[in-house]
């Protein structure tokens, strides 16, 4: 693992992976959404509004998976001080923020016709809103210090402690009475009909690839920016 923590080796591998994940993601998202929005059947109760799950559920899964990755990166950054781990955390946070915001937004638009309200303060909705704020906190801390190393360290500490929110999101619908329904897809199987499940999985796989591609692009850009400022500092010293 330490072998790949070297930024130079990372860049060699990241470049082709960015291309393939981006292409694969675009194809899968386009296919999954076309299948879900135009070919899949409506729901027996919700009618056509069920189609928002092809965006909402991937966003929900990936905003949590993204946060888990932030936590792992923060752990590696704090314990082993891998420069790449810091870069990964800072690169991933805004993408996770966008995904969780889209999860909240699409859920809210679905909630109005289904539940009869855009928003309630139940355990699931509130904990996902906290997830969004945690992402914003990581972004703010990473940028909030004159010394970027100090900012990344503070952001890592927050990301690590924020991990505690993930089991709360996951189990909120089981521990407490909530308006949000419990999970449909569990280890025991799925209570979503096959005709809706497959387009959902295709779209979720596609959005995962897109998240990976966007993260790799941001990581490469951040590494390039660090190199540039290091060179500028070197030049300023010699001049």
């Amino acid at each position: 693992m330490h072998r790949y923590a070297n930024p130079k080796r990372f860049l060699e591998i990241a470049q082709p992976i960015t291309m393939w994940t981006l292409l694969g993601g675009l194809v899968l998202v386009a296919g999954g959404l076309w299948w879900g929005l135009f070919r899949a059947p409506p729901d027996y109760l919700q009618g056509e509004s069920v189609r928002i799950i092809y965006i909402h559920v991937p966003m929900a899964w990936l905003s949590m998976a993204g946060y888990l990755s932030c936590g792992v990166a923060a752990f590696a950054a704090l314990v082993w001080k891998h420069p790449l781990a810091e870069v990964a955390l800072v690169a991933l946070a805004p993408i996770g923020a966008v995904f969780s915001a889209l999860c909240l937004l699409t859920g809210s638009l679905w909630g109005r016709p289904t539940w009869g309200t855009y928003w309630v303060w139940d355990g699931r909705l509130t904990s996902v809103l906290v997830l969004f704020f945690l992402y914003l906190g990581i972004i703010a801390l990473a940028r909030g210090y004159d010394d970027p190393a100090r900012g990344a360290k503070m952001a890592s500490v927050l990301a690590l402690f924020g991990l505690v929110n993930l089991p709360i999101i996951k189990f909120s619908v089981e521990w407490w009475n909530t308006l949000h329904q419990p999970a449909s897809i569990t280890l025991e199987g799925s209570s979503i009909d096959q005709a809706m499940l497959w387009p959902l999985l295709a779209s979720a796989a596609g959005f995962s690839f897109l998240m990976a591609a966007a993260t790799l692009m941001r990581m490469r850009a951040l590494i390039a920016a660090r190199k540039r400022s290091a060179r500028a500092a070197r030049l300023a010293q010699t001049a």
Binding site: D43, I53, S184, S191
Partner: peptide, 14 residues
Amino acid sequence: LAKHDENYMPPEVA
């Protein structure tokens, strides 16, 4: 408020 459950299926299946 209506509460929705975790089951999703096409009208024919229902």
